[in-house]
Structures are given as structure tokens and as C-alpha cells.
Design a protein around this nucleic acid. Structure first.
Length: 828
RNA sequence: GCCGGGGUGGCGGAAUCGGCAGACGCAUCGGACUUAAAAUCCGAAGGGGGGUAACCCCCGUGUGGGUUCAAAUCCCACCCCCGGCACCA
């Protein structure tokens, strides 16, 4: 047994990290485990700067939960990996002018060193590196499965183009119209790309949110992102000019109730019908407008809130199928091609945007909805004089009624909408429709640092998936991996890669040169962890059945919609294809909060980044872990203040002192009822709080208990201190191992300790302090026995001078008594 | 604009099935130990007022109303902060 008598975290932590490693403490036997528990944390991108405190905050929170479950008897598997492909790595490599293939291994080594120092319960025998061909072989396999299932398609689409990064960005990578990487305004470009049809799954992805056990805020974010809206698709025939074949404009609306107020139509400038319907006299003007909009990037176009609406008339007229009136057809850039049909029926009376447009171009505004209050009893809803000058009237509840809407006038707005759709549906002009904001997932990246998309193009046979036996399609070493300004991947310059033969006909063919999105790598990594020892399958069915779905997943809210939605989608697809039993990947997901420092956001530009390495060297990993979890509620985040570390640091030293003294004294059992009661209350509190990830209050409870143990210079008994050591182990694993060993336990504490149980009977006191109120104000606190009746309590309360004094003014009209809680005298 | 989260001492934060506001910790002040300092230990402390004192009174959880014997907690209106979405038809 080591003899050091003062707490030296570096010695203790080194000792136990070595022990864990030598004894394989954190490497469960995946096949023999009886109570498998898959404890997942969001794997990091291994940046050159090393482990970020935000990573460590998340990992520590997840690790504590894993260790807690393990001490409760679960076989916990807690793996880690690296999300090392993608734009982050590539941009950094470009910046320092070093090939990513050289950069990644040293970055990963650095991360591993820091992760080990942090005392995580990581199973280092099962890590994942997305840039390893043995991993991305299966990422490509996944692409092939979707391709074969018809869920991957190539389409020409307007995409976000960052002129600085020279690459296409996903919608999610555009923040407020700017590139998330370099803040350059994003432009539009037409490129042919691979998409996954996630929109086919929109409804299921939305529906399952009702039952999966996730942080509510995360579910809300996904609901917003999916953006379901109910309405109708309505057909507007073009008024026949000279063409004989009829042209119909389809528009989606959430307000079919307002159709009698639709006085004009607006198409997006990119709408394919525009060139077909424009009349000769308007052709030049329309063409000019379209050209202008095309040069305005998406940024400006979506930031036009406060600017005047612009647009031009096409010369064409459509017919309103409800009112039979003619509607001029305009084009305007406030209508977006990417949503609905790219065409709208404009109802200026009841849509603010349409209202502004109508005011600008002097188009007719026809009110068709108003509140009940606005109508006088005698007026006929079918012909109401009403003029809107201030803005559109957008309310639509059962409080509003339809007016000037032919035979639908007088109906409640919400019911009227349904009636109108039913009526128009009879003649084929409308159908109920659901629209989603969610777009298909663009997989293609015109970049170097990613898994090549496993597709071969053959002039004879068309696009072919690379046969599975030929996977992986290795990413060739390319000296000059810079992206090009032409939107063609650097891989296109590598002839040996580019030229190949068709797997179908054996003829000349060429490879797809785009690589896939990083979110595809991270969309399935959790499936790989339990199966890293199988190189002939992505995930072993038996292993997966035993360990998956993930039991606990903890991560940042920044991934609420991207990573978490994509991984749900891929899981659903694999489920449908018969590869997985569950269609949801995680039993429980909890988001953690954001760490700030001294009230300010942490950022490199502010120069207030926290270097975990430095703090762990100074204070030890245990103290640092404890402080990170103590500074605020884990799921809400908190404020990191250097001064705050002193609290946990003192706690560790005091506990060390108490344990050493308890061991020296060697006393067992309990000789103080109050202390024993405090112990049971602490066990209850800590157990409940750890389960709910309320780490800050669990730690406060342990501090409280230690204060009880040490009150008035008291020396604790072994039995008083041992349970505390076990309760502390999830938070401060190294020092707890040391204590456990000194208390005579067999190592590791995580293998041999049993989580303490509390005895509800021991929580009860026989006397308690009861507040006595007079008219709701506290006037005294009395001691009564537990369960004392109202009569008894009243009698004792009335002996209090301060109570009687306040009662003196009048009669007791009423007594409010809550047993064992309080008594309140109401006097009049 | 819409959706979500939040506003509590000098500071981080506790307490929300309505029932003693401020647990735990930081910083601060006083005391002990020390030649001294650091460390450590003990104690004080929301604000205001009264009392020699034990104590007592008033005010107090973003603002203004309301419900209730009783409100940080519930209801209504508003202000501010953080995050997400946003000309989404």
C-alpha cells in the first residue's frame, strides 16, 4: 500500500490510469456481457489544437453516467472515435500546407493522450477512425445500399456555392446566408449531385419524435426543421391565348379558405413555366428580371425582409377556379423555387408579403376573411364592404369567418377552408396536400478529403454501383488536393482513379469523382463500435442485437438537426432493408448545455479558450471533472470561472483527510443517528440526481455530507465514509479507486463495489421543525414529533409568544394545516 | 416575425405536485494558528430599520396586475437575454 499522506492528484491519477490499462478494466467482453449498456458520446473531430473543453465537458458528463450505470451492475461499453474526414480537416491541411494524411495521425495521437489523462472509461480496443479504409469501406457500402434501394438519386439542383471554399455547401452549412466556415456570402450554382431521399421519410421522422426519449428542445428543433405544413395543392389553368394545349400552374397554399381573395399569381423567376407563359410584349422585361435575380445570391434574396418587393408581369393570366376571375401572373423573387411548387396564389388581403407586393404594383386587394366582431348583425357576409390599408389580416381560427366568398360566405374560416378544398376537388382543381420544409440530403462534395462516392459511369449501362467485393474505393494520394474553381473534384485530375471499366459490361467507364458528406460518416458510426473486430461486415447482427440501440447518447445541441436527423434517417432505411431491428438509433438522448467563461462566449477570437491540459496538470483530472459538472446544470450549461475550482479542490483535500483519518482510527458502524440519516439522504439524492444528469446538485449533496462528517472536527467511521467513496466514483474515478483500495476493497472499485442503497426508514426523523404562519407570514418555527395532529401542533404553536402576539388582533377564522409541512392561522 | 429556453444575493447557482427563498460553492469580512505570509480551521453575511441583548419588524426571485390562507412556483399583460427557424406561401 502506498504511504503518501497528502493528496497528490498526479500520483494517484497516473497510478490508476496505469492500473486500468494493464487490467483491461474498461474493455468489456462484448459477447459475454449479461447487462449490456452502450454509453455513447458524440465523437470529436480531431483538430490540431487538441481536445476542446467543450468536448471534455460533454465527455465527462457522459462518462459519469456510464460509470454510474456500471457501479449499478451494468456492463458498460464506452467507445470513442474520430470524425476525421471533411471540410474542417481539409481546410486546416490547406492552411498549414500539409497533407491531411500526415496531419490526422498526429492529431489523433494528441487527442488520445488528452482523453486518457481525463480519466474517461474509454474502451481503447474499439476505436473508430472515419478516414481508415476499413471504416469508409462500409460508409461506401451504405451508399450502395441506398442506391440499390432507389433512395439515392442524381439531380441537377441549385446549390449553395461558397466562392472562397470553392465548394458546394449543404443548406445546414449556410448560416444566415454565409458559409459556416469562412463567412463568405454564398452564391447559387447549378450542379448535378447525389441526393438521399430523406423527404420520403419526413413523416416517419416527425411521427417518431412523439415517443422517443430525447431532450424536448432537440425534438422541437427537429420538428421545426422538418417543417410540416398542411394545406392544399390548387390548379390554376392559364387563360388560353393562342396555344391549344392547356397550361396549368400548380400552387401550394396553407390557406385554401382565402382562395376567393386570390387576385394574382406569382411564380419564382426560375420556375420552368416562365418561358412558356410569358407573352411576347413582356418577354424582354421578364428575361432581364430573371437575369438580375440569378446574379443576386441566395443570401441577399433571403434577407430582403425590409426591402421593397420587386417583380414583373408576364403578360399571362390564370383563372381562379373558385371565383372564375382572371388573375395576372407575375414573377417575383420573394417566391422561392425550393419550397412547394415554386408558385403561389397571392392573397394580398391575408398574407403580408402578398399585401406588400400588391401595394407596390397596385394590384387588387380583396378581403375574404374577417373577425366576427367586425361584422354587424345585419350585414350579409357574401357582400361586405371592407378595405385593408394597414396590412394583411392573417388571423385564421374559429373566431374568424369567411366573407365575399360566394356560397362559402359566413362559414368559420377553419371549416370553410376544408369545405372549399372538397368542393374544388370534385372538379379536380384541388387536393389536400402536406408540404415539408425538409429538403433531400445532398451527399456530393466537390472535395478531396472524404470517401469517394462508389459509383461508376458507363455510357452503355448508365451509373452503376461499385460491386461490394470491390469496396473500398480507396481515396488515392493526391499531392495537390486543392478544390478547383470549376466545381470539379480534385479526384478528376487523377487518371488512374478516374478511368475504370464498367462492372456490368466491362467497357470503358469512369468513376464518380465527388466524395461524400461527412454527415454520412457520422450517420452510422455508432453501429460500427461493437463490431470493429469484423472486417467482412459493417456491423455483426448478433453483436448489434445485443448492444444496440444505443442506451444513452449525450451530445451538443448544435447537432440537433443535422447529425441526429441523418442518423435517424439512415437507421430507418437500414431497418426497412432488413439490416436492423430498431428504426430508431438511440434509447435516450440528452443534450448538454453550452459552457461560457466569465459570462462571455468562449472563442479563439476572444482569446478566452480553456485549455483542459493546463487545468488537469494544475488541479488533477478529478478536480477538473468535478468542477466542470459543478459549475451549473449539465443540460443547461454554465459559467466557467477560474476561482470556482477552489471548491472542488478543497473538497478533495478534505475528503482525503477524512478517509485517511477514518482508516487510521479504524472505527466501524454508526454511532450518530444524525450522521446516518444524512448518509441515507445523500445516497437517495445522489442516486436520483445522477440518473437525471443533475450532476451539480449531486455534487452539492456530497459536499454537504462531507461537511456533516467533519463537523466539529469529527473523525468519520469507515462505514460512514465508504458509501461516499462509491457515490463519488463516477465523478472522480481516480481518487475513489485510491480510497477504495485504502478502505480494503478489491480493485477496481468499478468491478467490485456495489452501489449503496438507502433505507427509507433511516430517512425519517422523530422530530421536525415546523413553520408556523399567521396570515401566511412566518412567525415561528416549532419542534413537533413526526405525524403530529393538527390539535397537537396548534397547542404547541400557541405557546409561542411571537405567534400569540400576532394573533392578538382578532379571531382565528381558519387554520390551514398540512401534516409535517406547516400550519397557518388565518385571523380576521 | 415564429418556435424553444431563461431572468433569483457581490458572483456561479439551489429550491417549481403552491407551503421556512437563497442549499452547495466562489469571492468578501472577522477570528484562531503563525515571527509573518500562504495553506488550514472556526464564525458572519439578501437589503433596510428597531433593540444592551436573546431577538423583532418591513421589503425582497425582470416589470405591472390577478388567483390563493399562502406565489420564485399558477393565470393575464409587458420588458430584457440566449438558442433555433425565417419572404416556407
Amino acid at each position: 500500500m502506498t504511504e503518501y499522506t497528502t493528496y497528490d492528484p498526479s500520483k494517484v491519477e497516473k497510478k490508476w490510469q496505469t492500473f486500468w490499462e494493464e487490467n483491461g478494466t474498461n474493455e468489456p467482453d462484448l459477447d459475454a456481457s449479461e447487462r449490456p449498456f452502450f454509453n455513447l458520446m458524440m465523437y470529436p473531430y480531431p483538430s490540431a489544437e487538441g481536445l476542446h473543453v467543450g468536448n471534455l465537458y460533454a465527455f465527462t458528463g457522459a462518462d459519469i453516467y456510464g460509470r454510474f450505470r456500471r457501479l449499478q451492475g451494468d456492463d458498460v461499453f464506452e467507445p470513442i472515435g474520430y470524425d476525421a474526414f471533411g471540410i474542417h480537416s481539409e481546410n486546416y491541411a490547406l492552411k498549414v500546407d500539409t497533407h491531411p494524411l500526415e496531419l490526422i495521425p498526429s492529431n489523433i495521437a494528441n487527442f488520445e493522450r488528452m482523453l486518457r489523462a481525463a480519466g474517461l472509461m474509454t474502451d481503447w480496443s474499439r476505436t473508430v477512425d472515419t478516414t481508415d479504409p476499413t471504416y469508409y469501406k462500409w460508409t461506401q457500402w451504405l451508399f450502395v445500399q441506398l442506391f440499390k434501394a432507389g433512395l439515392a438519386e442524381k439531380k441537377e439542383a441549385p446549390v449553395n456555392w461558397c466562392p472562397s471554399c470553392q465548394t458546394v455547401l449543404a443548406n445546414e452549412q449556410v448560416i444566415g446566408g454565409l458559409c459556416e466556415r469562412c463567412d463568405t456570402p454564398v452564391e447559387q450554382q447549378q450542379l448535378s449531385q447525389w441526393f438521399f431521399k430523406i423527404t420520403d421519410y419526413a413523416q416517419r421522422l416527425l411521427d417518431n419524435l412523439d415517443w422517443i426519449d430525447w431532450s424536448e428542445t432537440t425534438k422541437t428543433a427537429q420538428r421545426n426543421w422538418i417543417g410540416r405544413s398542411e394545406g392544399a395543392q390548387i390548379r390554376f389553368p392559364l387563360r388560353a391565348e393562342s396555344e391549344e394545349d392547356e397550361i396549368v400552374i400548380e400552387a401550394f397554399t396553407t390557406r385554401p379558405d382565402t382562395i376567393f381573395g386570390a387576385t394574382f399569381m406569382v411564380l419564382a423567376p426560375e420556375h420552368p413555366l416562365v418561358p412558356l407563359i410569358v407573352t411576347d410584349s413582356h418577354r424582354a422585361e421578364v428575361k432581364a428580371y430573371c437575369e438580375t435575380t440569378a446574379t443576386i445570391d441566395l443570401v441577399k434574396r433571403q434577407k430582403m425582409d425590409d426591402q421593397k418587393k420587386t417583380g414583373v408581369f408576364t403578360g399571362a393570366y390564370a383563372r381562379n377556379p373558385a371565383s372564375n376571375e382572371d388573375m395576372p401572373v407575375w414573377i417575383a423573387d420573394y417566391v422561392l423555387m425550393g419550397y412547394g411548387t415554386g408558385a403561389i396564389m397571392a392573397v394580398p388581403g391575408h398574407d403580408q408579403r402578398d399585401f406588400e407586393f400588391a401595394m407596390e404594383y397596385d394590384l387588387r386587394i380583396a378581403p375574404v376573411v374577417c373577425s366576427q366582431a367586425m361584422l354587424s348583425d345585419s350585414s350579409d357576409p357574401a357582400s361586405v364592404e371592407l378595405s385593408l390599408t394597414e396590412g394583411a389580416f392573417v388571423d385564421c381560427t374559429s373566431e374568424e369567418i369567411l366573407i365575399n366568398s360566394d356560397r362559402f360566405s359566413g362559414l368559420k374560416a377553419d371549416e370553410g377552408g376544408r369545405a372549399i378544398v372538397d368542393w374544388l376537388a370534385e372538379s379536380g382543381f384541388a387536393q389536400s396536400e402536406v408540404n415539408f420544409r425538409l429538403h433531400d440530403w445532398c451527399i456530393s462534395r466537390q472535395r478531396y478529403w472524404g470517401p469517394p462516392i462508389p459509383i461508376i459511369y458507363c455510357d452503355e449501362c448508365g451509373p452503376q454501383a461499385v460491386p461490394e467485393k470491390d469496396l473500398p474505393v480507396r481515396l488515392p494520394y493526391v499531392e495537390d488536393f486543392r478544390p478547383t474553381a470549376t466545381g470539379v473534384s480534385p479526384l478528376a485530375r487523377v487518371q488512374e482513379f478516374y478511368r475504370t471499366t464498367c462492372p456490368e459490361c466491362g467497357g470503358e467507364a469512369h468513376r464518380e469523382t465527388d466524395v461524400s458528406d461527412t454527415f454520412l460518416d457520422s450517420g452510422w458510426y455508432f453501429l460500427r463500435y461493437p463490431s470493429t473486430d469484423f472486417d467482412d461486415r459493417p456491423f455483426d447482427p448478433a453483436r448489434t442485437r445485443k448492444w444496440w440501440p444505443v442506451h444513452s447518447y449525450i451530445g451538443g445541441e448544435e447537432h440537433s438537426v443535422l447529425h441526429l436527423l441523418y442518423s435517424r434517417f439512415l437507421t430507418m432505411v437500414l431497418h426497412d432493408l432488413g439490416h436492423l431491428e430498431s428504426e430508431e438509433p438511440y434509447h435516450r438522448f440528452r443534450k448538454h448545455g453550452l459552457l461560457i467563461r466569465e459570462g462571455a462566449k468562449i472563442s479563439k477570437s476572444r482569446g478566452n479558450v480553456i485549455l483542459p491540459d493546463e487545468y488537469m496538470t494544475t488541479f488533477g483530472a478529478d478536480t477538473f471533472r468535478m468542477y466542470l459538472m459543478f459549475l451549473g446544470p449539465f443540460q443547461a450549461g454554465g459559467d466557467f470561472r477560474d476561482g470556482g475550482l477552489a471548491g472542488p479542490q478543497r473538497f478533495m483535500h478534505k475528503l482525503w483527510d477524512s478517509v485517511v483519518k477514518a482508516v487510521t482510527a479504524g472505527r466501524s458502524g454508526f454511532d450518530d443517528e444524525e450522521v446516518e440519516r444524512a448518509l441515507h439522504a445523500t445516497i437517495k439524492k445522489v442516486t436520483e440526481d445522477l440518473e437525471g444528469l443533475d450532476y451539480n446538485t449531486a455534487i452539492a449533496a456530497m459536499m454537504d455530507y462531507l461537511n456533516v462528517l467533519r463537523a466539529d472536527g469529527r473523525t468519520a467511521s469507515l462505514d460512514e465514509v465508504r458509501p461516499l467513496v462509491i457515490l463519488l466514483a463516477p465523478v472522480a474515478p481516480h481518487i475513489s479507486e485510491e480510497f477504495w483500495a485504502r478502505l480494503g476493497g478489491e480493485s477496481s472499485i468499478f468491478d467490485y463495489a456495489v452501489w449503496p442503497a438507502y433505507d427509507p426508514a433511516k430517512l425519517l426523523t422523530d422530530v421536525l421543525h415546523l413553520p408556523v404562519q399567521v396570515n401566511g407570514k412566518l412567525r415561528a418555527t416549532i419542534q413537533v414529533v413526526v405525524g403530529a395532529s393538527q390539535e397537537v401542533v396548534k397547542e404547541i404553536a400557541l405557546t409561542e409568544e411571537n405567534v400569540t402576539r400576532h394573533l392578538a388582533g382578532g379571531d382565528i377564522r381558519k387554520i390551514i394545516f398540512v401534516q409535517d409541512r406547516m400550519i397557518n392561522f388565518v385571523v380576521g
